[in-house]
Amino acid sequence: MQEFYIESITWDTTFNLESEITLYVRHSGAAFRICYDPRILAVSPSVLDQHHESYRILHNDDPDGEYLEVAERLRKPFEELMTQMAPPIESTRHLHSYLYPPWFILEARVAESSSSHIQPHFKLALSRQESPRPGEYNGMFLQAHLSPLLNSELNRYSSRQVQVLAQTPQLVPSRVLVDGTVYFFKPWVSGRVHGYHELQSYRKILADTEASPPLLADARICRLYGLIIDNDDDVLQHYSLDNGEEDHSGTRLVGLLLTCIDNRGTLKDLAPWDDCTNEDRLRWSGQIHHAVECLHNAGVIWGDAKPENVLIDMEGDAWLIDFGGSYTPGWVDEDKRETVEGDRQGVQRIDDWLTRWSRQPVTRIKRNGEGEGRRQGGSVEGGKEVGGL
């Protein structure tokens, strides 16, 4: 786990040397906004020159990796101050503390002792009502479509009831414990069509499983087990979940509880390696075909069929994940997206891809060198580590 994680950096995208640079950093249960204002830094020509150079690199999005070096260089002077201000680490962490952390605004100033160094300065702390709302987009909202959730049979929990067992490298909770059962936590991003499509697919899988248990009983697919919904007492601000006629004011959908698949990595990660046998690839192909056939029999489309959306569990079996629709060029054609035909095309292209790897001489498949890096095993869903709300 990284001790500090830079969630994002903002600057003026229209070239402007007088642009501020702002870093958003997570550390030890707290969130920090670090501001570099050139008007404040102008008291030192050398510090201002450094700021301008940092801005140029960020603006150019340098492909040689200087972007990340700049981000770390801007964060580094604030390490000690952030460590002092962060709350004590809880022995048992809950999702609530991640979603609603204390927020602190920090500011870069020029050190009095040395005009060429940054002096970190605490500016103010934000109340929970003032702090940024995680997962909120300023674009369209689909909240009205979510009203059936509040009356569905899905289990509902508060983030205070969810214990965090593991996090992604981005410090986002991933594996969680609720009522003695381990799940994968997937954050809900308001206004995201992909998320709404996925949620509808999961609900249909659940309904079909209950209506006809044999239909999906042996399909290795990720499933939905519950919703995490917070109210005003948790959020401490008005955050309406839907705009329907019923009054659910003050509630917000936080995330989904999904199947936790202890896994070795994705199909894309594992299939190319020299310790993967042709028998493995053939078995995975058969399991993918079977799972997709089960989904289609239940009236569900997989959607974004590709090797990244197949997890290989610790027993070596393949699981389908990510039912958010859409498509990935090269795996499914755009005119076939989110259709049975598109799923079949994607599965056939996965088969072709596996066949190509099966024909590769072992000496060409290296662990360190050419080829793709292997994902560390762990509990993930969707073949992706979730980055933030």
Rank of each mutant, 00 (worst) to 15 (best):
Q2E: 14
S19P: 02
I21F: 08
T22A: 15
Y24C: 08
Y24L: 12
Y24Q: 14
V25Y: 00
R26H: 08
D37R: 06
P38V: 08
V43Y: 12
D49C: 11
Q50T: 12
Q50S: 15
H51T: 06
H52E: 14
Y55D: 01
N60H: 09
D62K: 02
E72W: 15
E79G: 05
M82Y: 00
E90M: 08
L95M: 03
Y98P: 00
F104D: 02
I105Y: 07
L106Q: 04
E107N: 09
A108C: 04
E112D: 15
S116V: 11
H145S: 09
S147W: 11
N151C: 04
E153Y: 07
Q167G: 00
T168V: 09
P169M: 11
P173Y: 15
S174H: 08
D179Q: 14
Y183C: 01
R192N: 04
G195I: 04
E198R: 00
E198C: 00
S201D: 02
L216G: 02
R223D: 10
Y225A: 06
G226I: 06
I229V: 14
I229K: 01
V235G: 02
H238D: 14
S240H: 13
D247P: 03
H248E: 08
R252L: 02
V254H: 01
T259G: 06
T259C: 03
R264V: 12
D269H: 03
A271H: 10
T277E: 06
R281A: 07
R283E: 13
Q287M: 03
H290L: 01
E293H: 10
C294R: 05
H296F: 09
V300A: 02
G303N: 03
M314E: 14
D322C: 13
G325N: 02
Y327H: 02
V332I: 04
D335E: 11
Q345V: 04
V347E: 08
W353N: 04
T355G: 10
T355R: 13
R356K: 15
S358I: 00
P361N: 10
R374Y: 06
R374V: 13
K384N: 11
L389R: 08
